[in-house]
Design a protein around this nucleic acid. Sequence first.
RNA 1: GUGGGAGUAGCUCAGCUGGUAGAGCGUCGGUCUGUGGCACCGAAUGUCGCGGGUUCAAAUCCCGUCUCCCACCCCA
Length: 544
Amino acid sequence: MAEKKKFQAIKGTRDLLPPDTELWNRVEATAREVFSTFGFGEIRPPIFEPTELFARAVGIETDVVSKEMYFVLGRVVGGQGSLEELIDAVNEAWRKGEIEHSSENEQRVSKVNELYESARKASAPATSITGSNEWIADLLTRIFRIIDEMAERASLRPEATASVCRAYIEHGMHAWPQPVKLYYMGPMFRRERPQKGRYRQFYQIGAEVLETVQPGQGGAAPEGSSLATRHSPLATLLRDAAVDAEVIEMVMTFFARLGLEGVQLEINSIGHAAENCRRGYVQKLKAALEQVKDKLGPDSQRRIETNPLRVLDSKLESEQAIIAGLPKISEHLCDECAKQYVEVKRQLDLRSVKYAENWRLVRGLDYYMRTTFEITAKGLGSQNAVCGGGRYDGLVELLGGLPTKGIGFAIGEDRLILSLQDQEQGRKVASGEWRAASEEKKGAAKIPCDVYVAWMGTATQRAAIGSAQRLRAMGVRVELPAGEQKFGKALGHADKLGAKYALILGEDEVASGQWTVKTLADGSQAKMSEAEFLEKLKREIKKQ
RNA sequence: GUGGGAGUAGCUCAGCUGGUAGAGCGUCGGUCUGUGGCACCGAAUGUCGCGGGUUCAAAUCCCGUCUCCCACCCCA
């Protein structure tokens, strides 16, 4: 008597089933259509990459990297919560032999433990590694590096921009016609607490525009200075604004094509990392925050140190008045960034893209600069952002490539689907179809079917198979029952599957060469030859 | 990691103040051996999330635990 173990999907993961998957496919097909009209090509990067790639690109101190990564160590290990948990996971993987037992790995495992011990002895808050602290960041980097050396050297991707940049460098895309425009879609992984519109395996549809600053173009690059901290000539900067606007226009076109309602675009500029721009502003902001520190909640108080910009998008009611009085980044942008921002807005106007400015919009990942944007939709609960994006000049360079400008976005596909479904349901309720919709579940066909071949008599099976083959060759969705059934039962089955037509094939039909075609919706039926039926279906397909 | 809510049939749920399970829908079969939807009849599926406690008796009361959902955090 073996005990039956009930398996269930891992927390935060889920099965997408028919008929929902039809909507997913529609969304993805629409993305491909729209993006290709904007000159984008699809890239499919791997779903796991060296941990260090994400650490470098996304930022070692961001939650996404320091708390939410899934490490691949022969098995997948989540990083949520604490350094301690990660170390435990490594030790367990070692104990179970999931990390290959070589002497090198043995040394690595003990080194990781040693690093961790030294951190604890330094009485650091080792259980909370939110990385406000430089040496903890450094420690994490070193541990990630060692973990990467063992086993699979990888983490499941928490986002894809880093991968796209890596691929850009690896395949020498700087030598492709510039700029290089790529889109992707697929699953991402973050070990967060799931809730509505947020899953541990979630899907993103994203696009990136990358353009390497060619030697001789964009002015002389100051030695050792990255694009993140220096400016191109104003003319190129303004041209970048047009690229930003077009990318945003593309997302909005995509949403419009899907018929997504209640879409709101918010934009902002967060300047670039220089003293006379964002860096200076952050100093001022920090100072201002220190003044009102005691009026802020614990989360915001913590962020004054870790990431002052994030205080701006706090949702706490009690903090709203205080935030409204804080210095605004728009008033502290350098001249070039300010001009670029004005141009982005002008370019959006040229494209009739409606937007709202939100000076409190800051992006969570380290690589963003200047233009940032976020799109929200209805029906999503508190996770109402369906798309986020921005400019990230200098990221490719940071990853070891040539000085390259970048702008991109990521759409939360799960959220997009939720919003579309919510909208559809709202429409049905409003139009009184709701009743029908709830009753339609009885017999609601999950998988579409056009023609049901009801055959009877062993001699007719050959004819039935032949018909099914010719129909399928035309792209018609055909259900051919494996065994013969009485026509009553067959038609009942056809009805349950939601077939449009039943093709009734019995001895009479085979003898006469005239098929009986029944239209299930109204019960009408007619005799016709196979050629006539194929012709009829062809016309109907054309109409759609 | 921190809060709040919920776990009873495949799905949606009822089962109040303790007496060892029910409905609707779905699925399958029959009435109906060349014609579906309707109707009627019938069947299968549950260790009532799991473990412990109180009790003659627990789906029901108590404790613990797990899972899911929602929210905080963070992000798409």
